[in-house]
Design a protein around this nucleic acid. Structure first.
Lengths: 219, 219
DNA sequence: GTCTATAACCGGATAGAC
DNA sequence: GTCTATCCGGTTATAGAC
């Protein structure tokens, strides 16, 4: 949604390298996000997705060779944002990292459909035969590695106490984010996801830091 | 799975009140849990569920008037365990309540299919049109109410510090449980869900208690 | 690049035989 | 209580016209 250029390697059925303004393709991906969000993968239908874009199912399959291919492209697309803002960064401190995590959640709280899709697919992908199983196991591994690495450095630098369990906290952090998203999607208007995450992160920092300081004040 | 008698009000198509040994019905529900776990609701098929039980789709619909009815009965069935062990209890302390929560997670970690189903349905139910939407919103409300009520009493009793936010912590607790379940289902062998929850609960108690004590030692 | 047509199948629900 | 038959509709994917 944010980037449109970055890593588009161009693997549609017709193909070659795509022209920059591949508008149709982009609109199909956006529609697919909404459908996978509401129906999950299995129960979504190419015809209904195509209809939302204003083409037929046959027309859609000109851009994506199969339904599974469409899912993979959707996941790759979604990754672009988090990749840029989070995974590709080296944080100077745990505080900075957690502040960024909070920013990510804030961002997610403006995109109900996308977040719902993520919830549904992450849950469906628990089945090893699900086409997104590999994606999600890899994603969690990457997330935990990135978080725990940052925490480990923060311990070494004296920002966090020596008793901190970097890998354990990383898993817990991932769990809180996902769990809060689940509750928020069920009741978007009545649940303050960002506020809850801020409270958690602040208490987490107070518990782990040597001097008992929480998140920086401006958060 | 544990209770077979309790609240069976008997609303099958043929019906009346069921005989105690309604074996067929029980086996259909068990099979349905597995299918909803792997496929979610929309993508599950009555014919495949029936096949697992050894009957046809038509035969299955003699016991449950529709697919949606089957889902509702499955959810009611799942509730029996948590209802008895958790929701119907009044806890004397936060420590006892959280210990029970840990027991529930331990129990879930022996039932991959059931837990996966719960994850998928909770995520799918984010769609207000999903047949389980009302069930899950009500379930979270009940969970948060029960947890926060226990925490509030613990604050009043001096077990937890006055700065504790009962409702906030209740939401957070629910999030951690769900999020850890999500990660566990993706990687059941490589992820110690119970251990992670124990670490979280212990740190939570240490942070919230006036005297800095964690969970009771035997956990 | 998009369409229509079609192949080959699967979905839930109902009706009626046994 | 379970089966078979049937209705009517939906599914992905392919083929070929334009």
């Amino acid at each position: 949604m944010e980037r449109t250029q970055s890593g588009r390697t161009g693997k549609g059925p017709g193909r070659g390298t795509y022209a920059v303004g591949d508008e149709r393709r982009r609109r199909i991906l956006d529609a697919a996000v909404e459908h996978f969000a509401q129906w999950g993968f299995h129960a979504s239908s190419l015809a209904r997705i195509a209809k939302d874009v204003g083409i037929t199912q046959g027309g859609l399959l000109h851009h994506f060779r199969s339904k599974e291919d469409l899912l993979v492209q959707v996941l790759a697309r979604i990754d672009e944002y988090d990749e840029e803002r989070f995974f590709s960064r080296d944080f100077d401190s745990a505080a900075e990292c957690l502040t960024t995590v909070l920013r990510l959640a804030e961002h997610n709280s403006t995109r109900l459909e996308r977040t719902r899709m993520f919830n549904v697919l992450a849950a469906e992908a628990g089945d090893p035969a699900h086409p997104a199983h590999a994606y999600f196991t890899a994603r969690y591994a990457k997330l935990v590695e990135h978080l725990s690495g940052t925490l480990r450095r923060a311990v070494a630098a004296g920002e966090l106490g020596a008793g901190t369990d970097p890998v354990g906290v990383a898993h817990e952090l991932a769990a809180v984010m996902d769990g809060l998203q689940l509750q928020w999607v069920l009741n978007p208007a009545g649940f303050d996801m960002t506020g809850r995450l801020r409270a958690y992160l602040d208490r987490l920092m107070r518990t782990l830091t040597a001097d008992g300081s929480g998140l920086p004040a401006e958060n």
